[in-house]
Design a protein around this nucleic acid. Structure first.
Lengths: 212, 212, 212, 212
DNA sequence: GATGAATGAGCCTTCATTCAT
DNA sequence: GATGAATGAAGGCTCATTCAT
């Protein structure tokens, strides 16, 4: 009927990416609850029923966004921090890649992630993603310790890794809130916090509570 | 049991506390958006209009919760970490008080705080609270540095403090999610992350990025 | 207990006037529905239950306002337009008094009256008040006609009087909306509209529809 | 009866008219505030969200009613009172059309209009509509005056027109309140009030206040 | 495959009104 | 006489979600 061929009848994969792009944009801008399916559909240039047909419920859609952005971030890090490098080098490259990614997608990953933390429905999803990160960091520490001939309890390892990840997330927030800040410099600062402490651990220095 | 004539015509101050108790509980359990004023009112054993009359809008109510719990937490910390102690002692006592508080109010403070991070309307409120914390930590570091005859740029100080606060928040989350974990042990672990690194800084050791 | 004697325990009549003053003010400013009993009570410096005890329901309160202001206005007119004056003189004095009153109470009578016209509950009350006015005007016309030895059907009299009252109300609105306008000049203009036509009627001139 | 497939999936334009019909009915019957969106939706045979989707807020809906009915009325008048007729003929036809319209829509226009006068939010909308009417009437008078070789100050013209419009509105109210009254006869009466006075003006007769 | 039309459900908020003190 | 405390009831508005075309 219409004489305009337009961008209709695109292959499914392309459409899905368009929708995810729109969804990431709207979720970041408005937050999960304030975002409306109407706005997402409109921003994607598509009708609402299509969104439901392709990507399901609002929650499922948010999870899909989280997934895609999280995977991209993990790939950026993994591509930079080769497993065969020495621990400090690996940590540095990983952090640099991470902050570079966050800086380059200022309204993507970091914001979505921040949104997700508060909402119960995404607890599981988030736990998985953070667990992957913590595991990687803990693995690095463990590996470095073993090289030094040391070892610490798995739970201590996890908690320390958790703290480092937390510090990193916090600086990612800081970076997202300071549009003019330099990602690389932020990574350097994080190294100063993380590595100086970690290096001590590696050499067997630990802090113990006073007798009280 | 109570000397109060059984749930009727209580003075305003008492009712406000009941409402805040209920609100903290419900907000923590459900999240800001999923929480309904109906449920909060019912949980407080009072009708909805009273909540509006005493504490205002849903947003205002949430902010009131944040305020009350945040103030309590700050007091717990301030009461423990006297300003005239040496830096490590102060840090240790502050952390111990903090994790003790979080552990004792596992579904109060930490969860509210987590909620607030994702929702735009509370950004300002939160920024203020975190700024207070960051300032305290940065002040401690700065003081310790000066004692050692050193000094670092204010922005570096801020970012490092920010990272430490982030690591601490992260462990607070971890603690809130692990009901059986020991607050004191968590504080010790945080000290190991924070102090070992900080002590290095105090002695003038810094990490610098490789030539690349 | 209190050492302040203040303005408490005033005689009932005084209190009622205070309340009515406040009510007129608030109703005028906000409109009947948008006005809240809270605001009225607060503005009267009295607690809400007192308002209910003295003046009853919100509707009753509004009617009371209407009554008081309407009576004042009628008195102002009646005091000016003595029944033994010739018709044109009487009309002129009446109009002058009316517009003078409206101009002097710009947010009293005219506004209340305007509010009341739209709300069903006050239809009866309003009908009564307007009927009084219409009756007065119709009486004046009838009297003048009889003096001239003429007579017209009661219903025609009523409708013409109704139209004159409507024109007057309309100019009262106009006056209320033009704070700088001069009440006396407005009265003169109304006379030009009303009396020129009426005088014709008095001399037996009437307009009839064309054959069509 | 109707060719429409029985109340389901109607095109937007149709539904909008149904909604406006229902809204006019309910607003007239209950008044703006007492009318509930629920009742309007139910009366239109449709769910509430549709009303919001198509016609917006309650206020916007009321304005839409005002617009539609006002436009219809203006068209009825404009269709009857051709601009090239002599002034008295034009006035007569305009009034006849107006009262005919009011009589035919006894619970439409006049009642809505009456509601709108009391409510602040619609002041602007109303001012515009009345200004149009006043302008037309003033234009007619001015034109007739010029034909007679006379002229009066613009503000006097406006105020007189305002008074005539007010008188007309008042009789429209009267007509709406008297279901058995004859619109044409009402128009004739209005002519007797308006034209006899206006004709005097046209011949240079004016009334002036006594020396006092 | 694609969409305009449609809705059930629910939430925040407000208000007139009344007890119990 | 006077008031702080308390509420039942309702209303506007929005949204995720799904038919019917």
């Amino acid at each position: 009927m219409s004489s305009v061929p337009a961008f209709k009848r695109l292959p499914r994969a392309v459409r899905e990416q368009q929708m995810l792009d729109a969804a990431v944009k709207v979720f970041s801008r408005r937050g999960f609850h304030a975002a409306s399916m109407d706005e997402i559909a409109e921003d994607a240039g598509i009708s609402k029923p299509m969104v439901y047909a392709y990507l399901g419920t609002k929650e499922e859609l948010f999870v899909a966004c989280l997934h895609r952005e999280g995977t991209r971030m993990m790939q950026a890090i993994a591509g930079a921090a080769a497993p065969d490098l020495p621990a400090d080098e690996r940590l540095w490259r990983g952090l640099r890649a991470f902050f570079g990614f966050v800086g380059a997608h200022r309204d993507g990953w970091a914001v979505l992630y921040r949104q997700a933390r508060g909402e119960q429905p995404f607890a599981g999803e988030l736990a998985t993603m953070r667990a992957r990160l913590v595991e990687v960091v803990a693995g690095m520490l463990d590996h470095a310790l073993r090289v030094e001939g040391r070892e610490i309890a798995a739970i201590d390892l996890e908690v320390v890794a958790y703290a480092l990840v937390g510090a990193t997330e916090s600086l990612a927030d800081w970076l997202a809130d300071h549009p003019d800040a330099d990602p690389e410099k932020t990574a350097t600062r994080m190294m100063n916090v993380a590595w100086l402490g970690a290096a001590q651990l590696l050499h067997g220095v630990t802090w113990r509570p006073p007798a009280d």
